[in-house]
Design a protein around this nucleic acid. Structure first.
Ligand SMILES: Nc1nc2c(ncn2[C@H]2C[C@H](O)[C@@H](COP(=O)(O)OP(=O)(O)OP(=O)(O)O)O2)c(=O)[nH]1
Ligand SMILES: [Mg+2]
Ligand SMILES: [Mg+2]
Ligand SMILES: [Zn+2]
Length: 575
DNA sequence: GCCGTTTTCGGCCCGACTGTTTTCAGTCG
């Protein structure tokens, strides 16, 4: 069964093919939109009925039928037909910056260019400039774009991108610009970031100066209101300049997402208004109605303010129209962390140091560590768990009104058993079950393994369920639908791991487990004191999933949390 | 291809930068 992302990727390819085929641009956009919808959808479309599919805004009869066909056959005939019309290499041409479908089509028809290699040859041998509507500069820009393409990686970790963004904001402020913000996917706090989007109040001279700064490797474009650069670390940076009284509208525009912007602009039109990055205007008189403050844009469109994390056009506009304020969980609501590592296994700090730090930060915490059989990190056996738990409890006595306990990141063995015996498990305060080995079992085996673990009454929390490592390792191949179904019966708590390259569960999976009535728990999975801040990345994901305090167990008091765990075990036949 | 509190046909967000360009198309945000 293909998952939503796989189906989305087919529709993205279909969009490119339609473009190359010279189809209606709105048909192309319909496929792009459908792909986006699927990527943000928490339900598995492959098991939905045609009627259910059509009920989704942006999915109609044709695309619903395609989804059905893909679910059964892995692809759809219209796509396969179109694909067979063109060489496979043609699809990759539009990935070259500055080359879109229109000119790719001409290059293919006139010069038989059907791959990036042939495009490069054609440009080098100066054949492109001879074509009507093409020229020397275009030819050179193509050569440059191809030569530099391989250096550009996919998407960046939020953790890495935000650091660079903050440096650039500071640089602009140092250069005298008082109002500077990062926007785009960074402000929406997506787990991966395509580029760094920055806006400031001032004039174009700031961008000219930035172009000559240490940050910049290449200048892609440089105008009066906007510029694009490739930075030294190969990330793209887009900068826009505005006037003070435009800043709210500008921030709204540049924060996006694109789909969210389009919805806002459509709502404006229905009210006889025009929304762009400079403000909200009356369509007839051109009079300005809002622009200085972002809040005013939403207000004048009849919407409550929408937190940036939710701006994906995945239901937030409808919620904002209902008039009810958003109530997302905040950092100050977090009362404890459950998952970290001490020097007993692969952490950098002693339990003493960890407790000292956490006593200043939280009301409570579970200090964790790896378990057997992870020998390479000196995973704890049951005896050493008990011994070190006593150490935690004794250290706890030093702190008034703080509660420290011991958790263990317990291995889910290849056969789905937990690494400690049942008799031992009842003496473990918090079991955070995790897979770290045998990641490549086949789908069926991996699914059964996970289900067996989840059915264990002592499997309190499942850590980083999918085991993805962003840009390095895909999610484990499992039947997530079934796993979540079993989890719903067990009341399983899913961890939202905040390690920058994990951020697992992601936003969409969080929505999925919450819709099943389950709760999540945030964790930094800190391996050193500094890494306790990674819980902010978990927070990003749950805010993007729209969660409030009631869905996040870190917002409970210690006793409430402990009771929750115990209740859960009892109900499932443990204790 | 999708959609509809005027619509089942005729619209579909809006603007900056570049170069193919002297009034606009292509591409991108
Ligand atoms: N109205 C409108 N706004 C757009 C369009 N494309 C982009 N934007 C706005 C919203 C985006 O969030 C913002 C920045 O564009 P980006 O291409 O950098 O996208 P974004 O940062 O959302 O995602 P990314 O992680 O960079 O891929 O510009 C568009 O076609 N129309
Ligand atoms: Mg961006
Ligand atoms: Mg951008
Ligand atoms: Zn861990």
């Amino acid at each position: 069964m293909p998952d939503n992302n796989q189906i989305a990727s087919l529709f993205e390819k279909m969009a490119v093919l339609c473009e190359l085929n010279g189809d209606n641009v709105f048909k192309v956009r319909a496929y792009q939109k459908a792909a986006l919808i699927l990527k943000n959808l928490e339900r598995d479309v492959s098991v939905m009925s045609i009627d259910e599919l059509i009920a989704i805004k942006g999915i109609g009869k044709s695309i619903a039928a395609h989804i059905k066909e893909i679910s059964e056959k892995g692809s759809f005939s219209e796509f396969e037909e179109l694909k067979s019309k063109y060489p496979a290499g043609l699809l990759e041409l539009t990935e070259i910056r500055g080359l879109g479908a229109k000119r790719a089509k001409i290059l293919y028809e006139k010069l038989k260019v059907d791959s990036v290699n042939k495009l490069y040859e054609a440009a080098k041998s100066k054949k492109i400039r001879a074509l009507d509507g093409f020229g020397e500069k275009f030819e050179n820009s193509i050569i440059e774009a191809i030569e530099k393409k391989s250096a550009l990686p996919q998407r960046f970790l939020y953790h890495n991108a935000i650091k660079i963004a903050r440096e650039i904001v500071a640089w602009l402020k140092n250069n005298g610009y008082k109002k500077v913000e990062y926007a785009g996917s960074l402000r929406r706090r997506k787990d991966t970031i395509g580029d760094i989007d920055i806006l400031y109040v001032g004039d174009g001279s700031g961008m000219v100066k930035f172009a000559k700064s240490e940050f910049v490797k290449d200048v892609l474009s440089l105008g009066q209101q906007k510029a694009s650069f490739i930075l030294k670390n190969n990330i793209q940076c887009d900068i826009r300049v505005f006037k003070e009284n435009e800043f709210g509208a500008a921030l709204c525009y540049f924060t996006g997402s694109k789909a969210h912007n389009i919805r806002l602009r459509e709502i404006a039109l229905k009210r006889n208004l025009i929304l762009n990055e400079y403000g909200l205007f009356s369509k007839s008189s051109k009079e300005k109605i809002a622009g200085k403050f972002e809040e005013d844009i939403y207000k004048k469109l009849g919407l409550v303010y929408i937190p940036p994390e939710l701006r994906e056009d995945s239901g937030e506009i409808e919620m904002a129209q209902s008039g009810k304020k958003f109530d997302l969980v905040e950092l100050k609501d977090i009362k404890g962390d459950i998952h970290c590592h001490s020097a007993y296994t692969d952490g950098a700090n002693s339990i003493d140091e960890i407790c000292d730090y956490l006593s200043k930060r939280y009301c409570w915490a579970y200090i964790g560590d790896h378990s057997v059989p992870l020998n390479f990190v000196k995973g704890l056996d049951f005896k050493s768990y008990i011994k070190t738990r006593n150490e935690v409890l004794s250290i706890n006595k030093k702190y008034k009104n703080k509660f420290f306990e011991r958790s263990v990141e317990l291995e889910i063995l290849k056969n789905g058993e937990l690494a400690f015996e049942k008799e031992q498990l009842k003496d473990v305060s918090l079991v955070i079950a995790a897979v770290h080995t045998s990641l490549r079992l086949n789908r069926k085996e991996q699914t059964e393994r996970m289900i067996k673990a989840i059915n264990n009454p002592y499997c309190d929390v499942v850590a980083h369920l999918t085991q993805r490592i962003i840009n390095e390792r895909d999610e484990m191949d499992m039947d997530y639908d079934r796993i979540f179904e079993v989890a719903a019966k067990n009341g399983t708590i899913f961890e939202v791991n905040g390690q920058p390259d994990r951020m697992d569960l992601n936003d969409v999976n969080i929505k999925r487990v919450i819709s099943l009535g389950l709760k999540v728990v945030l964790s930094s999975d800190a391996h050193s004191i500094e890494q306790f801040d990674y819980i902010e990345y978990s927070l990003n994901n749950v805010r993007r999933a729209g969660l409030s305090r009631k869905d996040v167990l870190n917002c409970l008091d210690f006793k409430e949390f402990k009771d929750f765990i115990e209740e859960n075990r009892k109900r499932r036949g443990g204790l």
